[in-house]
Simulated assay, not measured.
Amino acid sequence: MNIEKFREVIKRREYVEDISCGEWADGIEECQNLLTDILSEDITATIDFLNNECTASEYSWISEVLEEVVEKKPNTELVKCYKELMTKFPEECATYNIAGAVEGAEAILRWEAEHGKDSD
């Protein structure tokens, strides 16, 4: 996982959020697609990042694309890791729909398993 690029995209995503005053802007989807690509490129590295370097702010932004990452690269360990971090970042869980993102990701994994697609 390219952490430097990930953090650059997060900064851009925050900037787009600020200038759009919470409204949908074209740059949001572009940032989400880039984040999905970065996070799904190397799942082992992403899990390592989550466990060792991820900040509270980064954690909350990841919730925005967690389901897309899991759709692209179904991985039980990634979802488990992300879910376990809910205790480390309780304020983000209270402010953002982290539980909803986890539930969505778990539903994708269940669907994949039921339809014969194994997760990594």
Results as ranks from 00 to 15, higher is better:
Y59K: 02
I47Y: 07
N51S: 07
E14V: 12
N33R: 11
G104P: 07
T46H: 09
E92D: 08
K88R: 15
T95D: 10
E67H: 04
V79C: 05
T76K: 15
W111T: 10
S63G: 15
E17I: 07
D26V: 06
V69L: 01
D48Q: 09
I19D: 10
V69H: 06
E53H: 13
N33I: 09
C31K: 00
K88G: 07
G22A: 07
Q32E: 15
L39Y: 07
L66E: 04
I108H: 03
C31N: 08
E92T: 04
A107N: 13
S63H: 04
D37E: 15
M86N: 01
L35E: 00
I19A: 03
N51L: 13
E67V: 13
A25C: 11
S57H: 09
K73Q: 15
V69D: 08
T36Y: 07
R110E: 15
K73L: 02
A25D: 14
M86G: 14
L78C: 09
K83F: 06
S40F: 02
F89N: 08
K88F: 11
E77S: 15
V65L: 06
Q32I: 06
A107G: 10
F89C: 08
L109S: 07
T55R: 08
E67Q: 10
C81T: 14
E41R: 11
